[in-house]
């Protein structure tokens, strides 16, 4: 089923996709002419496939649950923010805060992602095939940020228990973020993610970063990092 966002209001389209008639067999949708509108496909909650043909504005696929959404274009700030489950694939580049606070599901960005990618992430898997901007995985709590390219400065600042994997160069690590051993267990875990997503990539080429856990308690010794 096709929706032309030049002809139909976003509210109507979102409303339709948010309230899928479960008896109906329609499960595949295509949205044309998104023209950078904001909150396209925000709040979807069913297992449906949506293809968006063009660029989207802020919060595309925001708070997604279960839906598979593919954007054939670039996305604005906060793509898949606070996603719970499902899969979002961006064929182009992503602006700031991609996958911010995501709790679950998978976000794949085939191009680059700007600053604060994976900020405060809470369990989501984010794969960026290009590079990520500064302060990515800031205060990241849980989940995996996997970067095939490079990471800009202050990666993983104040990180909690999320894991960061980077294949390329890391300009600098943020407060309390350190390089960690990439052991068998981590290699297997990462290979499993690649396999599930049919991504031909080798985990052992990646370095792993995570929390030194020194900021977990307010202590005088850590003052310079607060």
């Amino acid at each position: 089923m096709n929706f032309d966002l030049n002809k139909k209001k976003l509210r109507e389209v979102n409303n339709y996709l948010q309230n899928i008639d479960r008896k109906d067999n329609k499960r595949k949708f295509e949205l044309s002419n998104p023209q950078g509108q904001h909150a396209i496909c925000a709040g979807l909650k069913d297992e449906i496939d949506v293809t968006i043909k063009g660029h989207t504005g802020y919060y595309c696929a925001g708070m997604n649950q279960k839906a598979n959404i593919v954007v054939h274009g670039n996305v604005g700030t906060g793509v898949a923010e606070n996603m719970m489950s499902g899969k979002v694939i961006v064929k182009g580049n992503a602006s700031q805060s991609a996958g911010a606070t995501g709790n679950g599901g998978t976000l794949i960005i085939e191009g680059d992602a700007s600053s604060r990618c994976g900020i405060s992430m809470k369990g989501i898997n984010i794969l960026v095939k290009g590079s990520v901007g500064h302060m990515s995985a800031f205060m990241a709590q849980k989940g995996n940020l996997i970067v095939f390219g490079d990471a800009d400065s202050d990666l993983g600042d104040s990180i909690y228990e999320a894991k960061i994997f980077v294949k390329g160069k890391v300009k600098s690590l943020g407060a309390d973020c350190v390089e960690k051993k990439m052991d068998e267990k981590n290699i297997n875990e990462l290979n499993k993610i690649f396999k599930e997503l049919n991504i031909p990539e080798e985990a052992k080429k990646f370095k792993r970063y995570g929390s030194a856990r020194k900021l977990y308690h307010f202590k005088i010794d850590n003052l310079s990092s607060y």
Partner: peptide, 11 residues
């Protein structure tokens, strides 16, 4: 824009 998103999610 954030407000717009929240309104979209909650009809």
């Amino acid at each position: 824009i954030k407000i717009q998103e929240l309104r979209e999610i909650t009809n």
